[in-house]
């Protein structure tokens, strides 16, 4: 099976249980844990958020905090050597950009099964990633 092994696999995380569960199957595809890159995409603050209004929390600090949070959380889950990235903007765009940047061979993510209004309005992040990805995408069900 070693011909199936990938050098670099990207896993988008949105702090949901489902997204953390994508790490284990993704691990199967790489030789070493360092081949796993996890990305979380933050939305920008609304200008009326008190933190934005008084400029007490900027985007760099927010990224830094998420980075620390994920490093600890993943460490507790037993993934101490994974790469962690935090971006800011539209989730699907940032995920695709990151996949290109790290030249990933595969993206692994859950489908989330969004229903109803939001499904109708924008479709899921997974759908957009599948459409625009430079590499194969594995959608977990």
């Amino acid at each position: 099976m070693s011909w199936l092994k990938k050098k670099s696999v990207l896993i988008p995380l949105d702090f949901s249980e489902l997204s953390y569960e994508a790490i284990a199957p993704a691990r199967e595809y790489v030789e070493a844990e360092t081949g796993l890159t996890l990305i979380h995409v933050l939305a920008s603050l609304h200008p009326a958020d008190p933190a934005a209004m008084w400029n007490t929390l900027d985007d760099e600090q927010r990224k830094q905090k998420v980075h620390e949070f994920l490093a600890q959380k993943l460490g507790e889950m037993g993934y101490k050597e994974v790469q962690i990235k935090v971006a800011l903007g539209d989730p699907s765009t940032e995920i695709i950009d990151c996949a290109k940047e790290i030249d990933s061979d595969l993206i692994v993510m859950p489908s989330h099964g969004r229903k109803g209004v939001s499904r109708f309005l924008l479709g899921s992040v997974a759908e957009r990633v599948v459409r625009l990805s430079p590499c194969p995408v594995l959608i977990l069900k």
């Binding site: 939305a43 609304h46 200008p47 009326a48 958020d49 989730p91 209004v117």
Partner: peptide, 21 residues
């Protein structure tokens, strides 16, 4: 209006998720 768009957006996100704000 800016403040209330924030309150309304949080409520919307609570119902439909962050992505459709």
């Amino acid at each position: 209006m800016i403040s209330w768009s924030y309150y309304g957006q949080l409520a919307w996100a609570y119902l439909f998720g962050d992505r459709t704000v």
